[in-house]
Write a protein that binds this DNA or RNA. Structure first.
Length: 276
DNA sequence: TTTGGTGT
């Protein structure tokens, strides 16, 4: 009798775990392309766990006390209706006490990784709410956050997405490898990145990709194409492996070089920002 | 405000 009860319990647990796993895979496939980023070599600095949000995924590091990447899809929206900006909020899933006032008087902005406007336009109000979780923030210098990065976000949604119809985006931090410049440089508990990357992919038979790395110290008026890099370069600086399900030849074709032809970058590289 | 913080 007890054995039978045990076997029935085991059956339920197995089926439940299987259903959870299948659903998790389905969500991850929908919010990423060719697999979520993973680590090239497993070290404490590259280890992360995946937080599921409405409209985007976050690769959360308990060592950096911040996200290592976010992944989301964008598509053309004819008449986006954007609700007002909700307030910043802590995320209990991170366990770390990072709250809305954690960056207070630090000189750093709470910089969105998954952006408010684009996520709200494409994925709706609940998703917009999730972009204001502190697990989606990193300390960003105002000149970068409000100016150069804002210009890049605007160009993605207003130029690249209409040009190609849809786009997969991965964005995140680059940390300084030097211990005192990196691991010890924190706002509260959160490690301050030295730069940020953004990878844009147009899926298809011959996928196209564009990658940028932008440092903290910018004026904000720089042309965007000054910051173009290869995906291999981003992988070397972050220790992450992007698009792990891509075959070796396809990865080589997509990641080894800067291939900006067809994107029309020069048309938008000097487009001015909205602020200041 | 398609980004934000500071000081009142």
């Amino acid at each position: 009798m007890t054995l039978r009860r045990f076997l029935i319990t085991l059956l339920f647990v197995t089926v439940g775990a299987g259903l959870w796993y299948a659903q998790e895979q389905e969500v991850r496939d929908r919010l990423s392309w060719m697999g979520v980023p993973t680590w090239e070599r497993l070290t404490p600095l590259s280890f992360h766990r995946v937080l599921r949000n409405d409209g985007f995924l976050v690769g959360w590091s308990d060592v950096r006390v911040g996200p290592l990447w976010v992944s989301y899809a964008l598509q053309v929206v004819d008449e986006p209706s954007i609700g007002p900006r909700p307030g910043f909020r802590g995320d209990w899933r991170t366990l770390w006490p990072v709250t809305a006032d954690s960056y207070q008087s630090s000189g750093y902005d709470r910089g969105h990784l998954a952006p408010n406007y684009a996520i709200a336009a494409v994925h709706g109000r609940e998703a917009q709410h999730d972009t204001f979780l502190m697990s989606n923030m990193l300390p960003q210098r105002p000149g970068l956050n409000r100016r150069l990065w804002q210009r890049l976000e605007e160009v993605v949604m207003d130029h690249f997405v209409p040009r190609f119809g849809m786009m997969q985006v991965i964005t995140g931090p680059v940390f300084d490898a030097r211990f005192t410049q990196g691991a010890l440089n924190r706002v509260g508990l959160v490690e301050v990145p030295e730069a940020f990357y953004k990878i844009l992919v147009v899926p298809g038979e011959t996928p196209k990709a564009l990658a940028f790395i932008m440092p903290q110290a910018v004026t904000g008026d720089e042309p965007l194409d000054r910051f173009l890099v290869s995906i291999d370069r981003v992988e070397a600086l972050t220790g992450l492996d992007f698009f792990p399900r891509l075959s070796e030849p396809a990865a080589e074709a997509l990641e080894a070089r800067v291939e900006a032809s067809g994107w029309g970058v020069e048309e938008v590289a000097r487009r001015p920002g909205r602020f200041q």
